[in-house]
Design a protein around this nucleic acid. Structure first.
Lengths: 223, 223
DNA sequence: CGCATCTTTGAATCTGGTCAAGGACGGTGG
DNA sequence: CCACCGTCCTTGACCAGATTCAAAGATGCG
């Protein structure tokens, strides 16, 4: 486990755009690390020694039941912080959905950084509040929305986070979408087809792209 | 809105057991406020000027869809902090489930307190990490568990939080349970009856109490 | 070009929801 | 003290949305 502080790194102290700590470059590995698609960032149940910032790419955090059922609680895109844990172990696992570059922070220094760096403390607190809000919206989706509403919500959300253009390039598979929305891949597929037949979206042959043809209709479908 | 600091309160600076800030008693209304059952603590969409600590009683936070569907994201018991928001408005509403006493903190001072009081910052960060973990578990429940598994999880969780004894006194109605677990009241009722018939629990005539007869079986049912 | 993987589609099944009615508890007032 | 009433809870019959099982169709990588 790399327990060295960034002080030992030649790059420490550089003003990296988007870095949490700019002035005081202790406590994170300044050189972002590359991860490949499918790679495990950390496993459910492993020691929570670090937390992470997405510099580029996409990461999913998920939990598994013994029989293999999976729930993806969130997809993390550029700028997102993830991997915070109240306990000593990771309660969720994290895997790379799309080649990613991550900045790795030492959890052991979280407390010190909270105490010493007010700017950092505020960014961490803000990131956590956002995580809580997204979790709350997602519980509403999982607890109370129909399949059609879930897909509509998902498309609008991804559109907002990825591009705002009508053309979406989803980084994840149907199976990831299903496990995020609490559906099966068959239902995800059928619902997308249904939206295409209504003319609300378009599904090009490259199945990871989706064109939003009618955002108004999509918002109407999203409870 | 009471915007005065605790410095203006005669009680300021008292070492109140369980208070977030003991040494530096700025920024919270030192005298806990009483709320009655059914009372609204804050509404969904209202300005997020405060956050709260449960001194006694039970509070639920929930979201509504336009057509009335409701999702209760959490029940807050003694010691819990709630009402944090990343944005200016409350994205969830909070209502009292069981007569409660709440300590009210000024949100406007959150940032200052984070900067000035490291102990406070850590308690807030810890509370948020717990909220995130509970939200993650709850997403797993809502996305992937059957009605029976949801009820088993719920009973074990409430038992852990309320008493650890085999006798549970639930503070909330079937309707609250249903809206928390993403089920209908009929399914909650049927599932409890089913567990009673199996001898796993007992349902005394006072329908808010439940006796856990067989925790092992309950844990086996909880995926 | 061919194979492995992902996606779509169809048919049957099932879990949980909906609609409807009856029952029990507890508070209120006579 | 007891009868009444409102609310909450339970139960039953039927229904619907989503899952399961099965198979065919695409896509894209090697």
């Amino acid at each position: 486990m790399p327990m060295q502080t960034a002080l030992q790194y030649p790059h420490a102290g550089h003003a990296v755009p988007g870095a949490i700590v700019q002035k005081r470059a202790i406590a994170f590995i300044d050189v972002p690390t590359r991860f490949k698609k499918g790679q495990t960032v950390f496993s459910e149940g492993s020691a929570a020694l670090h937390f992470y910032e997405v510099v580029s790419g996409t990461v999913r955090t998920s939990q598994l039941l013994k029989d293999g059922r999976r729930q993806i609680d969130a997809f993390h895109l550029k700028g997102d912080l993830f991997g915070f844990e109240a306990s000593a172990l990771h309660r969720v696992g994290a895997e790379v959905v799309e080649d990613a570059t991550l900045r790795i922070y030492q959890r052991s220094q979280l407390e010190r950084m909270l105490a010493e760096d007010a700017e950092f403390a505020q960014r961490v607190v803000a990131a956590m509040m956002h995580a809580i809000e997204r979790a709350q919206s997602h519980m509403l989706l999982l607890g109370r929305k129909s399949a059609l509403e879930r897909i509509a919500t998902f498309l609008l959300d991804m559109s907002g986070r990825l591009s705002e253009m009508s053309h979406l390039d989803l980084p994840m598979s149907r199976s990831d979408i299903a496990d995020h929305l609490g559906l099966t891949i068959e239902t995800v597929s059928r619902t997308l087809t249904q939206l295409e037949r209504k003319g609300v979206i378009e599904l090009p042959s490259h199945r990871r792209s989706i064109v939003l043809r009618d955002r108004i209709a999509l918002r109407r479908l999203d409870a």
